[in-house]
Design a protein around this nucleic acid. Structure first.
Lengths: 236, 236
DNA sequence: TCAAAAGTGTTCGCTATACACCCATGG
DNA sequence: CCATGGGTGTATAGCGAACACTTTTGA
């Protein structure tokens, strides 16, 4: 069985750069390649687009198949088209940026060759994935600046210092603790959670020292409403 | 001559949404379709990607072929992949946002079926180009907010009220005349031009009433330098 | 009990906003 | 000479950056 066209067609794939956050470090998911080319190198999950699915569906399907993960957020960020980016044939790759909550990371932990890497210690990447990663990182920075997608990387309950560490990791800048807290609370999109101890929320607490931080919950409905109805700027 | 693959491949095209500004209105370039499907409808310039060019090269080539225009700025903004977006076969379209200066518009004025349309009076568009247009417009808004690409839509010499009309047309909001001027000048990226009358700059002056506005020039080098060396925010 | 981490408050300066006023030009 | 459009100036409010102090907790 084969497919014939009057003119040459590139192959079309999707690639998915999925980030997670463990409370301290930003991580990205990679899969070790078992075959040539780039055998032993690491690559983002992805694969060929089926004819009966759009690119986002394809990216989600590949991610699910290869890692069992279902992201909380997914968005196309760039399409890579360099002529020789794959040595085998002409391949155009539609790349997606995805985010997942720490709780969901634990869920989809099946034994594949997928592994989470801290951004500071990435292994050698296959194809042009080094470049794709840089573009993804930039896209994440730009989007988190004006959208609430940061909360798609946090658990349902979180502390403000945690949010700060997340923003600092992504934007690679330092915020003043007190100003950060003030600004975030003034936005009026967080709710304090009193009885959070009763929840099943996994406590991946690294040995805590000092005063315990208050737990908050993101009020997405309120956020959406404010973004619609008025001129409210989510910005960092 | 034909091309055969083991798996089905979508066709890959580029589409180019190119904007221009005549001093008052924002315009977009469209081409009337002479063949089915969507005969008589209008579409963005574009076409199939060649195997020896990347997508940006393809978009520029198609634009050049179909309209003779060479844009001042071009950037990929989204890839459209809906399964049935073209009734003939599966087509994935990599879409580009392009800007051109009024002087360059005059230059490439060959007799094709291309035509500039004011954003307020768009004709019926082919395929999913209505949707592509909305995404392009949003992309333009987002980019012009933090980048100096607005000047890629203006002539080499321009007035501040002209810049304001441009920003108001794109962002669809009204600025206070005096505050707009102050803000723009405070950025310190414009130079006043004294003897601009001697230049060949085309005067498409619509009948002017009232005091004549000063002419300025965009100092791109200074802008780049400020963006690099310090924390300078270009923002509107 | 002490150091580390988190919560709360205050000051200062910049800038966005909302205006008023003056200048140039063409009908 | 006056209406229209452009240039310049000023007052105020609010937010962001910098920084001091208090509270809680584990070692």
């Amino acid at each position: 069985m084969s497919y014939t066209y009057k003119y040459p067609h590139p192959a079309v794939t999707t690639d998915c750069v999925i980030f997670s956050f463990d409370g301290n470090d930003l991580k990205v998911l990679l899969i070790e390649r078992g075959n040539e080319p780039y055998k032993g190198y690491w690559a983002f999950p992805g694969g060929f687009l089926n004819m009966d699915e759009n690119a986002e569906q394809g990216a989600l399907r590949e991610l699910q198949e290869e890692t069992g993960l279902i992201p909380n957020y997914i968005e196309q960020f760039h399409t890579f088209t360099k002529v020789d980016r794959d040595p085998r044939e002409r391949v155009v790759s539609i790349a997606y940026l995805a985010l997942i909550k720490p709780t969901d990371v634990k869920g989809g932990d099946d034994a594949s060759d997928a592994k989470w890497f801290s951004l500071k210690e990435l292994p050698p990447l296959a194809f042009d994935h080094e470049y794709i990663f840089r573009v993804a990182q930039q896209a994440l920075r730009e989007r988190i600046y004006f959208e609430s997608i940061g909360f798609d990387l946090l658990g349902d309950y979180f502390t403000i210092p945690e949010v700060q560490r997340l923003y600092e990791a992504i934007l690679n800048i330092q915020f003043d603790r007190r100003n950060f807290q003030k600004k975030l609370l003034l936005m009026d999109i967080l709710e304090e959670v009193e009885d959070w101890e009763s929840t099943e929320e996994n406590e991946n607490q690294t040995v805590t020292r000092g005063r315990k931080a208050k737990k908050y919950r993101f009020n997405r409905k309120k956020y959406e409403k404010m973004k619609e109805s008025g001129h409210f700027k989510f910005e960092f």
